[in-house]
Amino acid sequence: MNYNLIVQAKYISTQSLKQLAILSSAHEIQAVSQQVFRLMGANPDSHTAVADFCHVAALDFGFVPSTRQPGNFGLVVMDMDSTLISIECIDEIADMVGVKPQVAQITEAAMRGEIDFSESLTRRVALLAGLDESALQRVYDERLQLSPGAEKMLGMLKQHNIRTLLVSGGFTFFTERLQTRLGLDYTAANTLEIVAGKLSGRVLGKIVDAQAKTDHLNRIRAELGLTPEQVIAMGDGANDLKMMAEAGVSIAYHAKPVVQTQASYALNFSGLDAVLPLLGTP
């Protein structure tokens, strides 16, 4: 199989491209845009050398089969917090009651895989007990921002009739609003219990953990009649690893090291629109 090496960053020097062409044995350099270059006929056996060079040069890269096209895919599954959006919603909710440091510490440990996700979520939500439900809308209005390139990525996926599933260990309050705002096809997340207008400190129903994310991916994939190879999954934390393992292509977006080492591709320096060149040539 022939491969192209996709190189992406805000700025890529000509010298870096020439060096990468040498390292990867590519025979031609094509400019896709000022931030994206395609090195034709690259040897994937050079992955380690290319990865080392790109790490130092702050470049994102990926070896992409030359025959791959966006039409090969039918579903993109994505995490929400710190992937589709730039914040961790629960940390920002916690800031409303002055417990953000405590909650953020648990969040980080869970993302690194040091604490079971369900346990971590239960502990974090308990710290929110008594908060007025209006705080959720404040977080959405005042703090929630899409990750750079999100809308461009979603627009291209729609253009190629690729369905989207937003599956989150976060909360339905945010996934449902993002679904309406962005035209996402499917969403799944946790529901915060609210009693008399205040958060009770509990989650309703079964927690959407790593296994639940995987189950949602496989359920939607089966409904759409797709093979695993037709699915792309992206995330940033240990809670995303199981679902990413079920996809033909997995993308670690500004992710923890444990996720980067197990993903098909890692994007550390670019926005979500950097997903597009990894799907092949339109």
Rank of each mutant, 00 (worst) to 15 (best):
Y3H: 13
N4V: 04
N4Q: 14
K10T: 08
Y11P: 00
I12F: 12
I12L: 11
S13F: 07
S13C: 05
T14G: 02
Q19N: 15
L20C: 02
A21T: 05
I29K: 12
A31I: 02
Q34E: 12
F37L: 06
P44M: 03
P44A: 01
D45E: 05
H47G: 08
A49L: 12
A51G: 07
D52T: 13
D52I: 07
D52M: 05
H55C: 12
A58P: 04
F61T: 09
V64H: 08
V64M: 06
P65L: 09
S66V: 05
T67D: 14
N72I: 07
G74Q: 11
D81M: 03
T83D: 01
L84P: 14
C89W: 01
I90M: 00
I93K: 12
I93Q: 12
A94Q: 06
V97K: 13
P101M: 10
P101K: 02
Q102M: 03
Q105C: 04
T107D: 10
E108S: 08
M111P: 09
R112M: 01
S118D: 11
E119Y: 11
R123M: 00
V125K: 03
V125H: 12
L127S: 14
L128T: 03
G130K: 06
E133V: 08
A135Y: 01
L136F: 09
D141G: 04
D141Y: 00
E142C: 04
L146W: 08
S147G: 06
G149E: 03
G149L: 00
G149V: 02
K152M: 14
G155T: 03
L157T: 07
Q159A: 15
H160Y: 15
H160K: 03
L166R: 01
L166S: 13
V167M: 01
G169D: 04
G169R: 08
G169M: 05
F173V: 01
F174A: 10
T175P: 13
L178G: 14
L178W: 12
Q179G: 15
R181Y: 06
L184K: 02
Y186D: 13
T187G: 13
T187D: 11
A188L: 13
A188F: 00
A188I: 04
A188W: 01
T191Y: 09
L192M: 14
L192T: 07
A196C: 07
G197F: 09
K198Q: 15
L199Q: 06
L199P: 12
S200H: 15
G201I: 00
R202K: 15
K206W: 00
V208I: 15
Q211V: 11
A212E: 02
A212S: 10
K213S: 14
T214Q: 15
D215K: 06
L217S: 12
L224Q: 14
G225W: 15
L226K: 05
T227F: 15
P228Q: 11
E229Y: 02
V231P: 03
A233T: 06
G235N: 12
D236Y: 03
D240Q: 09
L241A: 03
A245P: 02
A247I: 04
A247E: 10
V249M: 09
A252V: 05
Y253K: 10
Y253F: 05
H254R: 15
Q260S: 13
T261D: 09
T261W: 00
Q262L: 10
A263H: 01
Y265K: 10
L267H: 01
L267E: 13
G271M: 03
L272C: 10
L276S: 11
P277H: 07
G280S: 03
